[in-house]
Amino acid sequence: MIEFRQVNKYFGSFHVLKNINLTVKQGEKVVIVGPSGSGKSTLLRCINRLEPITSGELTVDGIAVNDKKTDINKLRRDFGMVFQQFNLYPHKKVIDNITLAPIKVLGVEPKTARETAMFYLEKVGIAEKADQYPSQLSGGQQQRVAIARGLAMKPKIMLFDEPTSALDPELVGEVLDVMKTLAREGMTMVVVTHEMGFAKEVADRVVFMDQGQIVEESAPAEFFANPREERARVFLRRVLNH
């Protein structure tokens, strides 16, 4: 479904992504872990061209993401994206945050869009907040709205960019629970996170990145019990031992 072949990316002279090869199949849950600045978020943001790649090939369902002929707005309909800082629209009510793209991008009738939005709000457990503004919600609630907003586009793939990193510790669980439900239902997911428990429980594959490279790629049981690479061992010792 998503395929990186020898992808490189530079920010000016800084080599952020080095020879990335990665395939994500339909229904797979791939969790990307690694130290800060290792290029995890950049890798994720390349998938829907929030960041352009410098060289190599990146395709989604066989379509070249960076090809000038590719209608990027159309391609982006297939992705739901959840950001670290939620990025809800502060001037719009929760319900309008969710219905905007379905109405404007997919051309869904407003009434139908509202029903779909309510369905997903129900699913993430905050239907009663539909008519409030984002600023009236807790961080965890805001992030659940953001997930509902992504789902309302009925995407094929959900991208999560450190979805719990900006949350107070006691609110992390509610967001992870929603993500676990999604995973169980068979959604294709690419998740950048520092939540090792989530990776262990949900991932089909864990991708470990360091200094712009994919250092190790393996099943979670194997990765956490027996990391092959020294850098992965050092990283795991650091994040798990406190």
Partner: peptide, 27 residues
Amino acid sequence: VPKGQSEAARASGLTYLQTMRHIILPQ
């Protein structure tokens, strides 16, 4: 207006002008 606003809007498939009109300019 924080950059994340236009990123969220563009990531959902809105065009540049739609993003301006519905997300950036009102704020």
